[in-house]
Design a protein around this nucleic acid. Structure first.
Length: 599
RNA sequence: GGUUCCGUAGCUCAGCUGGAUAGAGCAACGCACUUCUAAUGCGUAGGCCACAGGUUCGAAUCCUGUCGGAAUCACCA
């Protein structure tokens, strides 16, 4: 992982408050104790139980000072206050030097945020990043697990973009292979002309199991039975025919695919995700075969007597891996090698990220290893963004037990709930039907997206339908509400004919503690986006947005805006509020969540 | 058995490169709307950060081991 950041994020110099105060402290410490390493200057936000805004941790400096923590802290504090006009006062608690900054310092920090147009959008890194996500399977409808994949993929793409990378979003449609043939066989046998596809893979499995049992009852071993079941042989035969482009098989395949593609498009549109390029396995699998030949020539792979091709990875602590079946047909790995190779040739990406569930950790470990063995140095630039499963309170989703949560159904249900909730609260009064629909869609989907994205991707997560429908507390609607609330201030200002101008805050303004906290937090946005990019974790953005919204709500509650008679004070409050709304909007956008003007 | 990931409040989750007394939400109880949106805010209660060692001035965080849980190790994808 570390090498990845190095490649894609050649540390953009972010001038945040910690750096500013760090530099001030650095100079004072240097003049006190001589040259010390800059990394020993560690600053952090002062905990709320202590007096001060920022804290310098003095422990690392004890070697240089050769004095006790308390004395060292006091010495440095004294020096900083006399050196810097920005620092108002200091106090030392144990090994912590708390610094109180002048209001002017914070006002300037805030005004810097406003004047910096590139703020939060990063600077161009010149790096090209490809991200593959979604990768649907054409014989299964999209469900909750796919939702997590799509939301993660889209959001990570946004975040990487915000960090200044050129991002290409791609989708690889898994439209061929033995599993597709299984569905086709099942449809021919049991379909009766129906068009929905999803259930036939299950139907095949059921029939397959029955046949295996029959064969085992006749005395065959389980392995033999699995290989010899007639329906399985038919599927294998169909795969061979498909790869041979048998016209009958091919046209049935095209027909059945057509049924699902329309559905995918609708789901993607509702979810608000999109792609720059769509790959189809049916088009890429042949390329993999060429690589297999190359690997055989290089002696990296070996062919068994039955004609199947393998690679032995035991020396790397892994197993033997199949690359081509005995009958010459491709497996998953075959085409994934080919696709990766093609993408590198076409896009020359600096990094390629695959958003794929953690059940495929092993696959990607092997994929990278094989590419490396084939001499592709760029395999180091492949990163598997592995995410955990989504579980239901009653356990895992199992299609055979009907416990799968369908993506379309779930999204619709969320919007419906948002609508009835909004109506009940009287939030839709004065809105046209179209506006009301927009708001409800935004809220319903916002709740769902936030619920899923706020969790660290690599962790398994629990999806409790009851809880996810809650719109209070740490939820998407809470953040959306905060935004809407602030935006309504602007409307109110117009209504009251308050001549509000968005101007820098005057440096003569005093600041409340809450305002300093907000400014610190706003200033942290850029760093948060950077860290979220490094970790490919939308959860970090989500939690940031929540913390900011929560902080603002406290401020909002405590300080009246329009009621404030001092014009300078009023403008300061409104200006800060609007900046909060703006950052919330940007942050939520990185999650693929819209924020309404009113709700 | 091998590999990878996870174990923090009753539940769902934060806690970035090690820093002060571990934080939110939900659920429970109490308080605040004639005042800019109460989808809000405030308060009470709730913890051996799985366990044991180690490194350090300092560990939920890093290292080792143990115990739990998940995924994977297919001529499936």
């Amino acid at each position: 992982m570390a090498d990845f950041f190095y490649l894609c994020y050649q540390k953009i110099k972010i001038m945040n408050i910690d750096d500013k105060i760090g530099d001030i402290a650095f100079q004072s410490v240097n003049s006190l104790y001589g040259e010390v390493d800059r990394s020993l200057i560690q600053t952090q936000k002062t905990r709320k139980d202590f007096v001060g805004d920022l804290t310098l941790v003095v422990f690392p400096l004890l070697k240089a000072s050769r004095k006790s923590p308390e004395i060292t802290g006091a010495e440095i504090g004294e020096k900083i206050v006399s050196d810097s006009s920005e620092v108002e006062s200091y106090n030392v608690v144990k090994g912590f030097l708390n610094l109180k900054m002048r209001a002017k310092f914070w006002v300037e920090c805030f005004n810097d945020i406003q004047s910096d147009e590139a703020f939060g959008c990063g600077k161009e890194t010149g790096k090209s990043v490809m991200i593959e996500y979604s990768s649907p399977n054409t014989n299964k409808p999209l469900h909750l697990g796919h939702i997590r994949n799509n939301l993660l993929g889209y959001s990570v793409a946004k975040i990487l973009e915000a960090n200044g990378n050129k991002v290409t979003k791609v989708n690889l449609v898994n439209d061929r292979g033995i599993h597709i043939c299984k569905s086709m066989i099942a449809w021919i046998k049991f379909g009766n002309g129906e068009t929905p596809v999803g259930k036939y893979y299950v139907a095949f499995d059921k029939a397959y199991k029955t046949e295996i049992k029959t064969l085992m009852d006749e005395g065959q071993s389980e392995d033999d039975a699995k290989r010899n079941a007639p329906i399985f042989l038919e599927a294998q035969d169909m795969l061979r025919k498909w790869e041979a482009k048998d016209s009958e098989v091919y046209s049935l395949w095209e027909t059945m695919n057509g049924w699902v593609y329309d559905g995918f498009d609708v789901t993607y549109k509702t979810m608000g995700v999109n792609f720059d390029k769509i790959y189809y396995e049916s088009k890429t699998y042949l390329l993999g075969k060429e690589l297999v030949n190359k690997g055989l020539e290089m002696g990296v792979f070996h062919k068994r007597e039955d004609g199947s091709v393998w690679i032995n990875l035991e020396s790397d602590g892994l197993d033997e891996k199949l690359l081509l079946r005995a009958d010459g047909t491709s497996v998953y790995m075959t085409q994934d090698l080919g696709t990766a190779y093609e993408r590198q040739s076409e896009f020359h990406f600096d990094k390629m990220t695959y958003v794929v569930g953690n059940e495929q950790n092993y696959h990607f470990q092997v994929l990278k290893l094989i590419l490396k063995k084939l001499g592709c140095q760029w395999a180091d630039n492949i990163y598997h963004l592995s995410y955990g499963m989504v579980e239901l309170p009653e356990g895992k989703m199992k299609s055979r037990e009907g416990t799968v949560v369908d993506a379309d159904d779930l999204m619709e249900e969320m919007v419906t709930t948002a609508r009835s909730m909004s109506k009940e609260l009287g939030k839709l009064e004065g809105l046209s039907q179209v506006e009301a629909d927009d708001v409800c869609t935004m809220i319903g989907l916002g709740a769902l997206k936030y619920f899923i994205l706020k969790v660290d991707p690599k962790k398994n997560m629990m999806f409790d339908p009851k809880e996810s429908i809650d719109f209070n507390g740490n939820t998407g609607p809470f953040i959306q509400y905060t935004h809407a609330r602030i935006r309504s201030l602007l409307r109110k200002a117009e209504e009251l004919k308050i001549g509000y101008l968005r101007v820098p805050i005057s440096t003569s303004c005093l600041l409340a503690d809450k305002e300093i906290e907000i400014i610190q937090m706003l200033n942290n946005y850029e760093a948060t986006v950077a860290v979220a990019g490094e970790n490919m974790s939308p959860a970090m953005i989500a939690n940031y947005c929540y913390d900011l919204a929560k902080l603002f709500n406290q401020y909002y509650h405590e300080f009246p805006m329009m009621k404030e008679e001092n014009v300078q004070e009023r403008n300061k409050r409104i200006t800060i509020s609007l900046e909060v709304a703006s950052i919330i909007k940007r942050g939520m956008l990185l999650l693929g969540i819209g924020v309404p003007e009113r709700m």
